[in-house]
Design a protein around this nucleic acid. Structure first.
Lengths: 342, 342
DNA sequence: ATTAGCACTCGAAACACTCGAGTGCTAACA
DNA sequence: TGTTAGCACTCGAGTGTTTCGAGTGCTAAT
């Protein structure tokens, strides 16, 4: 068990390290601390904290930096979400308070705002209703050889994809396909739709339609892509600001990883707490040492739960990030509730 | 006027510098050159080439590197487009030979292939017919408060945008708007459309429709975005490979610049020659010193001219880049001709 | 339990030294 | 007259040395 003073020291050390980026020595902490104690005393305490593994030296006579365990303790017990400045609040409100928008816009602008306000990389996921269902499917012939497929779900997403067809497919084939889809798929939960699309539908289509395989394949990918579009990521380039001494090659891998939404899924999609933080090594990926991922969930009652995430340096200001995220949680809950009501 | 030998030396120097990235000395050139001459002779020639400004030293006793003027000479007179390897040709053919695709896919895949094959950053612009016209406009009510606008042009583009409307707009308003658009805009060249959209249409709409301004604004932006979508860029992260010692901050500015299609316009859109190269300083932008932009045009008869561009280090292998671009020019002409015919 | 004092450690910065690739120049040569 | 061997010279990159100071741990006194 840590004493009050030890906790203060750990707290001060992390705050100082966050703002300077330099290892912190006993004198620096002495000046910062309101408790009266000499630097020698603080040295003793620090050496104790080091034995317990909360802080560590970069070399034998250096100041201390927080360890993984230290950060963990700080985040679990010491974080004080910081009040967001009035002018920033105003901006958030201006941008996300405005109605008459599409889901995609809301998500995209949230991501952009979040990265602008934090100067880190922001990832925003739209709400994912447990039982999101396919509510509409249409095929619209645009001209001789172009067809638009429109897919609607009950969480407000509307996907569409224009595609070309070989001449061999005629109007009546299209109608048949649309009928099959409407009959067999509309009303089902999305995961069910995906399953049927792979197993049962090809048979049906082959039965009724002369040559619809090409179209069918395109459609399947359109449906798949609709789940990818939950992800909105912004401020990727901010990573450059705090990837010191990371070599260019690693940086490239990192970006490749972020481009691939599947990877983000692994990292993010199973968050359930209001706030969660993964620190460096906790993400089980070499590329992410020195990074932290702060995630927050927001709930839109009746329409599922969405996720906000900020990817920044492990030595980021968690207080500030928590503060900003908290504002976004509330704002998005509010904005989206309106969105669905309207 | 340069002698044959001087030209050989310049040629060898640029090739060597391209492959090693190091300043080149007289002995190295002597080994490379088929002409028989001692290193001393070559030194004399080099000092001559330096006086004329084709090459320069990095410091008083260093080997030489090509100067802007040297590159210019090389590109204008010495480039020998390199034959593309058989297996690479095969890949290009496989990907772009396949029909039944949308315009967007073709462009996007071209950009990706081009950046993969060169390991640089690739930018591809679809063909821009001088007289591209708006051929179709539809408004499709999806449900109570969602409408999809579909915009077609005669160069094969189909843009669409779903948007939400305040309840205040009713079905009959929509029909009126669609009629106005069809009546006044369809058939016009796109630039004309944009002009009318700003000047004349708002008046009309206000006259006939109770409250369509919101929708109108959204539509305008949809039309604008359709011109942005001519740009397909790929392999941005390859810049990291050859941006040595460029500081992170500059790198960030560079990426910001590339995100903004408007900037690319300035750089690229007025190319007319089959091939053109802008070297470093020629691009009039600090960020691009040490970069070169190689552009090539491709023509799709009856449907205008498109542009291919590769952004790489000034010290890139122009021979290779020219070779690859030439293959793409021909392939795209062919693929798109098919596309429009089908 | 706290603290003043002190010897000790180690990285960063400054400086000196060496090495070698490359140059320009001169003088000899075909 | 153009070419070349030879040589003195230059400068950056790499390496070793020294200095400086921030920080530590330990000891002995309070």
């Amino acid at each position: 068990m840590l004493t009050k003073r030890q906790i203060s020291i750990l707290d001060a050390l992390i705050r100082l390290y966050t703002s300077t980026g330099q290892p912190i020595g006993s004198k620096t902490i002495m000046n910062e601390l309101d408790v009266d104690a000499s630097s020698a005393t603080i040295r003793n305490e620090m050496s104790f904290l080091e034995k317990l593994g909360f802080i560590q030296k970069t070399h034998s006579s250096s100041g201390r930096v927080p360890s993984l365990k230290g950060y963990r303790f700080y985040i679990d017990h010491l974080v004080k979400p910081q009040q967001v400045a009035q002018d920033k609040m105003q901006v958030i409100n201006d941008v996300l308070g405005n109605h008459v928008k599409q889901m995609d816009d809301i998500m995209h602008q949230s991501a952009q705002l979040l990265s602008d306000l934090t100067n880190y990389t922001a990832i925003v996921l739209g709400p994912k209703a447990e039982s999101s269902r396919l509510t509409g499917f249409r095929l619209l012939a645009l001209n001789d050889n172009h067809v638009m497929a429109i897919i609607q779900t009950d969480r407000g997403t509307i996907e569409n994809k224009v595609f070309r067809l070989p001449k061999s497919i005629n109007e009546s084939d299209l109608t048949k396909v649309a009928n099959i889809f409407n009959h067999h798929l509309v009303g089902l939960p999305l995961n069910e739709v995906a399953r049927k699309l792979q197993r049962d539908i090809p048979l049906l289509i082959r039965k009724y339609v002369s040559n619809a395989m090409d179209m069918f394949l395109t459609l399947e990918s359109a449906l798949n892509s609709s789940s990818e579009d939950r992800y909105h990521i912004s401020g990727k380039m901010n990573l450059l600001d705090f990837s010191d001494n990371m070599d260019k090659q690693k940086l490239k891998s990192l970006y490749t990883l972020l481009e691939n939404k599947g990877n983000l899924d692994l990292l993010i999609d199973h968050m359930h707490q209001d706030f969660e933080v993964k620190i460096g090594e906790e993400m089980n990926n070499d590329l992410f040492t020195n990074f932290s991922l702060v995630t927050a969930t927001y709930k839109v009652s009746g329409h599922g739960t969405g996720i906000l995430a900020v990817l920044g340096p492990t030595s980021m200001s968690y207080d500030e990030t928590f503060g900003v995220l908290d504002v976004f949680r509330k704002q998005l809950t509010h904005t989206l509730l309106n969105y669905y009501l309207e």
